[in-house]
Amino acid sequence: MIVIMEQNATQEQIDAVAKKVESMGLKSSIIVGTERTVIAAIGDKRSDFKDSIESSPGVSGVTPISAPYKMASREVRPEPSRVNILDFSAGAGSVGFIAGPCSVESEEQLMSSARAVKAAGATGLRGGAFKPRTSPYSFQGMKEEGLKLLAAAREETGLAVFTEVMGTADVDLVASYADVLQVGARNMQNYRLLEAVGQSGKPVLLKRGASATMDEFLLAAEYILNEGNEHVMLCERGIRTFESHTRFTLPLASVPYLHRRTHLPVIIDPSHGTGHTYMVHDMSVAAVAAGADGIILEVHPDPPNALSDGYQSQTFDEFSRTMGRCKKVLAALQEDA
């Protein structure tokens, strides 16, 4: 249920309603918008909830939340959310660019990548310290040593660090180094992990599972939001279909659909979504044109010799060209607005 407060409701009245909601065994979340303040009441509804709350001072009305995902819904927060970390910003009109190698391989490899993507205009640095690989014999990442290198790169460049956390036992360690915790596609429905990253207080980049429906994707985000962590970004990284010309099928229709259903920022991953470097440039530009709140790209100093995902990684020059084109599209969209 959503409790809609009157425009002139006092903070005392808002707090009193939130306390009353919680006294009824429900979880309350106060959401201050540009035009109104609402209180989301989450949990099993009591039969007398509506009448009891509606009569409280300062309350304009009580309406049900129709979406199965409550905190992520536009019904609860009509205005788009924005996530800010250091110089990175995504959502509510801001477009963030995240780039870097699939895996942290060495200090030289990571630092050269961080400097290059920073120079091209990125404000976020991606890099895997813990790598989930299909084969147990593939490179699994540098683990904590990789995290230390990511922190050093942030210290020099000012880029916000995005890196994946694979298990609940690693959350505290990764959170001590990273600015944003990434939950990968394989872990989208690892509910204990979602709760743990929600409790961390760190911003979260949640990737869509390869076979997940949109409702499943948004309900996964709900687990994080339900822990009180509002700083969630959704990442469309492609889904598995019958097609074989790309690694996955990248549905850019996800951008307007998610913007209609949720207030959370939507990030696009053209690297995993295509699996081919030659497609990444065009799909990055298309994602920006479709209204994405950000893109995340794999960039490597020597893609043919990368320890993971070199076949979908851009060179520094290719990334610089992609950034230049994306910025032109953004400028054109702003002129048209």
Rank of each mutant, 00 (worst) to 15 (best):
V183H: 09
V285S: 14
T277W: 07
F88S: 06
L150G: 12
V32S: 04
L250C: 10
A90M: 04
G201E: 11
R46K: 12
R133I: 02
E227N: 00
A120Y: 11
R186T: 05
K50Y: 09
L252H: 05
A286D: 12
V180S: 10
P80E: 01
A185W: 02
Y191H: 15
G91W: 02
V329H: 05
V266M: 02
R208V: 04
K27R: 15
A16R: 14
H281W: 11
M142P: 02
D282S: 15
N187W: 03
K45P: 02
A220I: 03
L147G: 11
M5I: 05
G58K: 00
D215H: 06
H231Q: 15
F217A: 06
D170F: 08
Q109W: 04
T277C: 10
Q109H: 08
L206E: 07
M188V: 09
V83M: 03
T249E: 03
A290T: 13
R237T: 04
H245Y: 13
A169T: 09
D336R: 13
G291P: 13
G273R: 04
M188I: 08
R261S: 00
Y311E: 15
T277M: 05
E79D: 15
N190R: 08
A286C: 14
G294F: 03
E164T: 05
G310T: 12
C235T: 08
G121F: 04
A67S: 15
D48T: 12
V197R: 10
Y311K: 14
E105D: 15
L206Q: 10
S52E: 15
D269G: 07
D48H: 10
K70A: 04
S211L: 10
I295C: 12
T277F: 04
V95T: 15
L206A: 09
V59Q: 07
Q11G: 15
A129T: 06
S308N: 13
A120G: 07
F319H: 13
S60Y: 09
F319N: 13
V83I: 14
T262C: 03
L330Y: 06
G61Y: 06
H263N: 00
S200M: 09
T262I: 01
S113T: 15
A119N: 11
L26K: 11
V38P: 03
G324K: 08
A185C: 06
E230P: 14
L181G: 06
D282M: 02
S60M: 07
K50G: 00
V266L: 02
